[in-house]
Amino acid sequence: MATTTPTTPTATPAPAHEHGHEAHGRELLHHFESAQQQKETATLGMWIFLVTEIMLFGGIFMAYIVYRWAFPDVWAEAAHHLNTPLGAVNTVVLLVSSLTVALAVNAAEEGNRRRLLTMLGITLLLGATFLVIKGYEYSEKFAHCAGAANPVAWVTGGARLGESECLVPGRNFIFPEAHGAEGAEAGHGTADSYAQPQAGLGSPYQLFYFLYFVATGLHAVHMVIGLTIVSILTFIAWRGVITPTYYTPIEVGGLYWHLIDIIWVFLFPLFYLVH
C-alpha cells in the first residue's frame, strides 16, 4: 500500500488484505485500493456487459433487417396486427421507470433512503405493469391458436380452433390477409382444390411473428432479471446498506435497467410501427 497515493477522499481505513470476502456491502473489497477505484471498476464492468447484451439483441436485429429487406410489404402488413396502443402504453411505462431509476440513483447519492425506497418501489410496480401488459398481448395472440387454453395442443398442432387468424408461429399459423401465403382460399383450377391449409409454414408473415416473439420474449426475460435485480436492490436499500459513499449497486443495477428500456425503445418502432 505504501506505494500508492496515501489518502483517498473517503478516507477508507487501509484494508486488511487477509480479510475474507463475505462481507460485501459498504466495505471495500480486499483487492481494490480505494472506494473510488472499486466504484469505477464496477461501473465499467457493467458497461462492458451491456455491450454484450446489445450484441445479443444485435443478432436478432440482423435477422430482422435481412428479412425486412427481403419482404418489405409483408413486414408492413404483418405489423398492423400487433396491438400498437398497448405497445405504446408499455413504452411510456418503461420510459417512466427509467426516470424513477434515475431518481433512485440520485436519492442514493444524496443519502435519502426514504425516497430511494419509494423510487425503487415505483420501478418495481412499473416493471410488473409492463410484464402484465406484455402477457396480455401474448395471450391475445395465443387465444386464437388454441394456445392460451392448451399450450401442449399448440405445440403439437393438435387442436385447431378453426379461426381465420393465428399469429403464433407454428403449424396453426394463419395470417388473415395474406393471399397465397396460406393456400387456404377457395381454389380455382385443379391445383389448389386439394390444397390443405398449410398454415403458415413457409410464409414470410410467420418470420415476422417469429422474430417478434423471440425479440420481445428475450426482452421479457431481461425484464424478469431486471425486476429481480431491483428487488434485491430494494432489499439491501431497506437493510440500510446503501449510503452516500457506497451506492454502486444502485448505480450499476440502474444501468442494467436503462439498457432494458433502451432495447424496448428500439423494439417498439421496429415491430409495431412498420409502414
Partner: peptide, 21 residues
C-alpha cells in the same frame, strides 16, 4: 460471443418447436 449465442438459441428454438428463420 453474444451473436453466436443468439444464433445457437434460434437453432435450438427451430429444432424444438419447428418454427424459425
Amino acid at each position: 460471443t453474444p451473436v453466436v449465442g443468439i444464433a445457437l438459441l434460434l437453432v435450438a428454438i427451430e429444432r424444438i418447436w419447428g418454427v424459425g428463420i
